[in-house]
Design a protein around this nucleic acid. Structure first.
Lengths: 244, 244
DNA sequence: CGGTCGATTGACACCTTTCAATACGGGTGG
DNA sequence: CCACCCGTATTGAAAGGTGTCAATCGACCG
């Protein structure tokens, strides 16, 4: 029923580092099943201490924090291949929530086995640290964008990043990929109001730079959009990362 | 000459998780010396691939990224106990720079020994992952502040966080601690202009909430400042973290 | 058909940036 | 010893980007 790690479709993307056969067998034992959830379903709650860890296999979601005043910060968009729950596994409890935006399929891992990574599979333990470092890197980039770019640059930056990820994962057909979020989600990710996000998206659409509607994103000339975002096409590419 | 890990003064703070005697001996072998640098000295450069790792022992510094347009994002303030260089060790090269703001003393570790953490000391390898998760957590908090709070809240939040850290590390005398940064550094950390940061600091000073000048920060009533920052005094405390 | 949710648009207020000028202290060279 | 320069802190005024308020519209659903 559940996909075998050896046949994992994600492994086809060269975004992810290759695994040894032994590591793949180990992951297969670590994996206890698959979970399918509907759009809108919460997966992990801030403050919770879930007994399970996940890898997103299909579909997209959100990581976010909720503030006392009711506002919300979207930390990032969850894409296939993302590992979910590492914070809880290592720090004790989640500092943010995770929720599905589209229908999602997730590999489920048993957290009680987590320690075996470090005890018996040091390569995989190293990969966990690598993974944490990669998320830290992405968060740093997001912080930089939110703090230093204006609204147009921010939205353009986010759409570029999303498109890059979509291409790398093989989610795109031509210049179009699915993007099952609301404008409010993007606004909360970039620290902009919904209204201003909407107007900025409208401007990018008018300029034929990016078109996001009906759950689909189209960027015909990503190089041009990157220039507008103030990104450097040479250095700004996705780092290879481990896949759990 | 160099401090023995067993006598490390940082270990006195209960901010850091305790280590087994065996782990302390291991860290002593891992440590190759101490480095003393002047204010303003770059320690690691973005894109570099340093053969060394560090733990800040005394003094303070900055982690930052530089953008194409010349602007700068301060990712966080480096305090005693911070581990420096993990990204390079695990991802290959640094994605940001690190620089001293005051005179600093750093423990120097040999990166070629890094792999031994995972091979022979799984508890320490776990701590590395823990450390990466903690930095990710802090970065997420910073992103949330920058994206969701206004200037007054942001500055108040940053000063609270700094004061909390200073108290936990025993850097403070009464309600005062050293803070050897420029206003521009805080502005670059919070995504505010220098001028507006200056005026916001002035308002907090006028309201007798926080006084930062001549390298010293005084916060007489931190609970009041936290309320202004929109922080929750109950849940917002520093997580215990490992010390390398 | 009424009701809800998300997207869209216009007007207006205001927070923040930018520009510019001043002040102050430390260091350097005459 | 003083003039000068440089980096940092401070202050005022004006311009502009972004948030808030409010209303409309279309799609979907019971």
């Amino acid at each position: 029923m559940a996909t075998k790690c050896a046949q994992c479709p994600l492994r086809r993307s060269d975004l992810f580092a290759a695994l040894s056969d032994d590591d793949i067998r180990f992951m297969d034992r670590f994996k206890v099943g698959e979970l399918i959830i509907d759009p809108g379903t919460p997966l992990l709650m801030e403050g919770s201490n879930s007994p399970q860890l996940f890898t997103a296999l299909r579909g997209m979601g959100l990581r976010f924090k909720t503030l006392e005043n009711g506002r919300r910060q979207v930390l990032n968009f969850v894409f296939p291949g993302d590992f979910i729950g590492l914070q809880a596994a290592v720090m004790g409890e989640m500092q943010h929530s995770v929720q599905a935006s589209s229908a999602m399929t997730l590999c489920v891992f048993n957290r009680s086995e987590f320690w075996n990574f470090f005890k018996s599979h040091p390569e995989r333990a190293f990969d966990l640290t690598w993974l944490a470092a990669v998320s830290e890197h992405f968060l740093g980039e997001t912080l930089t964008s939110v703090a230093q770019r204006n609204a147009t640059e921010r939205v353009a930056w986010a759409l570029c990043k999303i498109m890059q990820r979509g291409h790398a994962l093989g989610l795109s057909k031509g210049h179009t990929m699915p993007l099952p979020y609301r404008q409010q989600d993007l606004a909360d990710a970039l620290g902009l109001s919904l209204v201003h996000t909407n107007k900025t998206l409208g401007k990018l659409r008018d300029r034929q730079l990016a078109n996001w509607g009906d759950g689909m994103l189209t960027v015909s000339d990503i190089a041009k959009l990157m220039r507008i975002a103030g990104m450097d096409a040479d250095t700004d590419c996705l780092p290879t990362q481990p896949l759990m």
